[in-house]
Design a protein around this nucleic acid. Sequence first.
DNA 1: GTACCGACCGAACGATCGTTCGGTCGGTAG
DNA 2: CTACCGACCGAACGATCGTTCGGTCGGTAC
Lengths: 217, 217
Amino acid sequence: MSAPARLVTQCPDDILSQCAALMARQGYHGTSMRDLARTTGRSLSGLYHHFSSKEDLLYLINERGFSSLLGNAERLREEWRSRARAKPATAADAAALLRDLISAHVDYFSRHRSEMRVLMLGTQPMSPAHGEVVRRLKQRYSEVLSYAVSEYLAGHAPGTPRAEVERKAWLLFGMMNWIFGWYSVDELGSPRDLAGDIFGIFTQGCLAGSRAAATSE
Amino acid sequence: MSAPARLVTQCPDDILSQCAALMARQGYHGTSMRDLARTTGRSLSGLYHHFSSKEDLLYLINERGFSSLLGNAERLREEWRSRARAKPATAADAAALLRDLISAHVDYFSRHRSEMRVLMLGTQPMSPAHGEVVRRLKQRYSEVLSYAVSEYLAGHAPGTPRAEVERKAWLLFGMMNWIFGWYSVDELGSPRDLAGDIFGIFTQGCLAGSRAAATSE
DNA sequence: GTACCGACCGAACGATCGTTCGGTCGGTAG
DNA sequence: CTACCGACCGAACGATCGTTCGGTCGGTAC
């Protein structure tokens, strides 16, 4: 423990994202360790110096991605809660929280598209222990979003049933996640426009309530 | 060409869906031909009697799924067009078309969850020829949906820019598709409720226009 | 100097992969 | 009877898979 300090190595951050980029295109099982070694400019056994196994690599990508996403979301929620303690929150405040969460999500996705695509393609091939950690992160993240949705609905459409709140939160998730699964971000305009559209459609759509669905018949 | 008629065999319909069920859980590369042979109750070489290759099997699942989806959608659109020729279409008619398309989509997904999950996980490992066919089907399907969205917006929010129409159609796609990627249909209520929610959020959300997105700041 | 370190490599291991080949069996057709 | 057919199987092929092992090299620590 002396002069030059440890900044490189230790945790192979760039290697991880290079691997994620390849896995995003070919899938976990469709990408071999030899493929990953080649694109990271290392040898096969050199790659194993950084990760204990292929599954471990997948876990690290998942853990890192969801942790960042969750960190952003929980920070926004805490800021909102401390503001709410200072002075009572208005309905507009809840809308602002929801809008910030959507923006943060879309921004993060657009800046880490490969990693996010890996996260979306499923958790199946992970060990029970790793899978549990990732599942927990996923759930905590969706709980923050559900919380914001229910706070928003409490202010703008009070009395919405719990089941409907959750269903709508999931639909919001759908809008936020799907686009990056199929399409390129280049064809969709800026993340800012996209987040604005999602926020606009969701909030205005929720205001109309569920009874508005009966148009014909 | 005589008595008993050909109803079985020819095209292995049930085998296909059994294979899709396994691939939906493990992914294409994560499922071996031996796995597929075992779950279909056949031997490895017995399976190759029905499909020329593993990739061919993936293609058949994709082609079949998207063709059904597209068939339903184009039928609904043609019905609408012929009604529009009889008497001028109202704005409510366009909403009904959109609602029927969403219902058909959600219904089909809920009845063929495994196949649909395979379709959503990507097209990469297909040959150029097969990939092109599937890509064409996908595009035709999304064009029907975009058409309905633009017809709806023409009646309810005239003057919406083309790019915004497409972005909103994609967000609608997101709501329709995402839920079956992550969550089980059991927790989401009936397909009917779900389709109603999607239709309600989307249509009411679009009515508010894009300028409503500026709530704070 | 020697000792130890993390980063990295070439070569190989056993297992599993997609695919092929030769053959069996029950059922019409002539 | 023979000829032919689709459905199906066991056994094997070459290739590729994830992983391991022994070793090399440049750099501190003492």
